[in-house]
């Protein structure tokens, strides 16, 4: 019973990881790719670690929980840093982009300063 539940979580986690990788290939620009690479993959990895928690013994489960905690803190922070850096260094967004308030505000501020 325990093993079946853990296998189900493992399978769903792998499915989300696969979706993240497909998104990484299919999406058109940096920001969208970053989104696919961090989010779906974080949830997928979280589900895989959850299956480890269910199947493994108590010490293993404790370490898996710690890993889960650290991944859920570091992965969005890294995504945030990369997205901000690519926006500040003027990497172009996809041509179908609707609006870009951040670049507008940033350019306005630098104009006011000079």
């Amino acid at each position: 019973m325990k093993e079946t539940i853990s296998h189900i979580f493992l399978f769903i986690g792998l499915l989300f990881d696969l979706l993240g990788c497909i998104g990484l290939v299919r999406f058109p620009d940096v920001y969208l790719r970053l989104m696919a690479a961090t989010k779906s993959v974080t949830l997928g990895t979280g589900l895989i670690l959850l299956s480890v928690v269910i199947a493994g013994s108590a010490p293993v489960a404790a370490k898996a929980v710690l890993v889960l905690l650290f991944i859920s803190v570091t992965s969005p922070t890294a995504a945030h840093a990369l997205a901000r850096a690519s926006s500040v260094s003027d990497i172009k967004m996809w041509e179908g982009t609707v609006c870009d308030k951040f670049t507008e505000d940033r350019k306005r501020k630098t104009n006011e300063k000079t």
Binding site: F16, L19, I22, G23, R26, F27, D29, Y31, L32, M35, A36, K39, S40, S87, M93, W94, G96, T97, V98, C99, D100, K101, F102, T103
Partner: peptide, 17 residues
Amino acid sequence: VAYRVLHPDMPIKPGIV
């Protein structure tokens, strides 16, 4: 997001708000 990734036309409308 899975729906948008797998849809053949990719119905996305990105932007920074």
